[in-house]
Design a protein around this nucleic acid. Sequence first.
DNA 1: ACAGTATGGAGAT
DNA 2: TCTCCCTACTGTG
Length: 274
Amino acid sequence: MPEGHTLHGLARDLNAAFAGTSPQVTSPQGKFAEGAALLDGRKVLEASAWGKHLFVEFEADAWLHVHLGLIGKLSILPRGEGVPPVQGQVRLRLLTDDHVADLRGPNLCAVVTPEHVEGVTARLGPDPLRPDPDSETAWKRVSRSNRSIAELLMDQSVVAGIGNVYRCELLYRHRVDPFRPGREVRRATWDAMWQDICELMPLGLAAGQILTMPDQVEDAKAALAAGEPVVPGERRYMVYRRAQEPCRVCGSKVRTRVVAGRNLFWCGRCQRRR
DNA sequence: ACAGTATGGAGAT
DNA sequence: TCTCCCTACTGTG
């Protein structure tokens, strides 16, 4: 679930539900009992995201730092009558009269200082979902690296927020050879990929779903431009998780191999550009 | 019941 | 490059 658009959506939803309130903070599972006690009853100032990191600023310089990792989930729901029953392993629960947020399976959930937050964000590359992300910084890292572009796109210090789905799909959309070293990628190619990801991720945020299929992207862009809600549709991708299936353009079998610790999917015939 | 998988990342080797 | 952590769901026996 969690690539950058997910975390930005959660920050947005946390703000809508909790900004300005002083929620009860608990750790039903117990693994975050100390941190929960520290935050309990404090006022929430603002939630924000940088890449896949989620921060919630509470009053008096206490920040909640969450990273969902591969399997973490955060649900934010309006609260009905009574206290919603705890289901499964809930590391952290925020509760007000109106809302309940449950965090399960995070890679990281900690109370940290403002300095710590600065340290974390300083190590992250530009995030296409933050205002004025700096493409040049990312390009410098890419163009000076011997590592493959498929590895570089997964490196959060190069671009923050891209995960395996956006990586596979972005490379495919631009017909880029995933194994080409960063220093051999053309400037024009990078610029086009950067511009594309800067459009795709806001669509993903608006839809609550990664959209990379040309028809879905077009519909979403039109809806966004018209000020209409972007409705999530069928989960379809160009190459992601389509190993052995025919490429939607040329029909040759989609290939897969582990790159940077995740399964890369690509079309060996369509993706030859640099 | 158990194995395998998942949109991630840190730390050891 | 490997190993481990976190949770839930799917497929297999």
